[in-house]
Design a protein around this nucleic acid. Structure first.
Lengths: 208, 208
DNA sequence: TCTGACCTACCGGAAAACCAGTATTTTTTC
DNA sequence: GAAAAAATACTGGTTTTCCGGTAGGTCAGA
């Protein structure tokens, strides 16, 4: 049986080197390259056609989820094994939609990592125990990030900057009344009734 | 010359194993233990008396800066080499105050890491190039987190929750007018003139 | 003991935000 | 090409915040 060809993607060189050394003694696994950015990774996949990509989510140039999606759509035969520290449920589910074949935490043991690589190469899914537990937990009331329209996305940060409706209107060449309407709609979507709570929530959801 | 005894502290087991393998071939360095939490690290330092502690900042139980401070005060002969991904100036300076002997980024090369270990063991400081550049940059206008009084610290989060001055007053058994005064003082301290900007800034400074 | 910081509380007025509707036009989407 | 969604704008009214100034009481440190 030919060795599984693995590509390593992580923005920390030390982690890359460490992983490489860790996988080196395993006869059924062959590391075909290491990348530190999304761009590098995409190029390397094209050049090396690995079986499995070990993908860290924190890359400097693109969010890992985007890389995952691109790889999955362009190279369906390449299995993406996400390797990260985040273990939020929403993130896991999102990545599965993006075509990831598995999800291993960075504090997993080397044995677990090897197991995960074999599993996804065999066409199966792999989740570390912690992640599985997370998926089994009944969905908490679903925080649900409101979907904002283009205009609303534009206005929200301006509100956060402390601009008044009039100032925003001037800047966007709108009537202040229009801005007030958008403002009300945004408040409604976030289910709050004043700016303070809105900005806090928006901040928590990374919308600023 | 005896080998430098190094203790590795990082919450990701893979990073630990990777580092261990990375340092293994170096004859002048001996890894005497690996720890995944602050508690473990403190115990291990007491037991092993290493020369150098390679310390990651993101530990599950305590902020790395606290560990650094404790180590430096309890075991002055132990050199702490901070190994992390954060490279904010304030963080670097804070850690130096906490007694760190050096600062290496996670995407440093293994050679650089070895060099850093040798340097701090020799009693010198070590900063990776990127960090040095950061330190050389003229201090940007100093963002300056405003100092809030006890009452203000109490009221600010309530504002962020979307409570009106009246509601806050009810909750704290105060006059709404008093709350308004505090509110104005808070706005003044943050140098903003409405709640939206206040909450955004407070959030950025981690005051909520 | 006095000073300064803090907490408390008030007045009056202006500005802004919030609420409940309605309505026209433009853009998107099926 | 019609329906749905979004963007625009308005009326009219209430609530809240913001601003400037004042002021008494407490408490800690010089």
């Amino acid at each position: 049986m030919a060795a599984i060809r693995v590509l390593l993607v992580d923005d920390h060189r030390m982690v890359l080197e460490g992983l490489r050394l860790l996988l080196q003694p395993l006869p059924h696994i062959q590391v075909v390259g290491t990348c530190a950015s999304a761009a590098e990774a995409l190029a390397a996949v094209a050049a090396e056609a690995p079986d499995v990509v070990l993908l860290d989510l924190n890359l400097p140039d693109q969010p890992g989820s985007a890389v995952c999606r691109q790889l999955a759509s362009t190279y369906p035969s390449v299995k993406v094994l996400v390797l990260t520290t985040l273990n939020e449920k929403s993130m896991v589910q999102r990545l599965m939609q993006d075509g990831a074949a598995g999800y291993v935490l960075k504090n997993a043991s080397p044995e677990e990592l090897a197991e995960a690589i074999s599993r996804v190469h065999a066409g199966r899914k792999y989740f570390s125990d912690e992640v599985q537990e997370l998926l089994l937990q009944p969905t908490p009331p679903a925080p649900a990030v409101p979907t904002l329209t283009r205009r609303e996305k534009e206005i929200l940060p301006l509100i956060a900057q402390g601009l008044t409706s009039q100032a925003i209107a001037d800047q966007l060449f709108l009537s202040a009344l229009t801005v007030e309407t958008h403002r009300r709609n945004i408040l409604a979507k976030f289910e709050v009734n004043n700016t303070a709570a809105l900005i806090r929530l928006a901040g928590e959801h990374g919308l600023l």
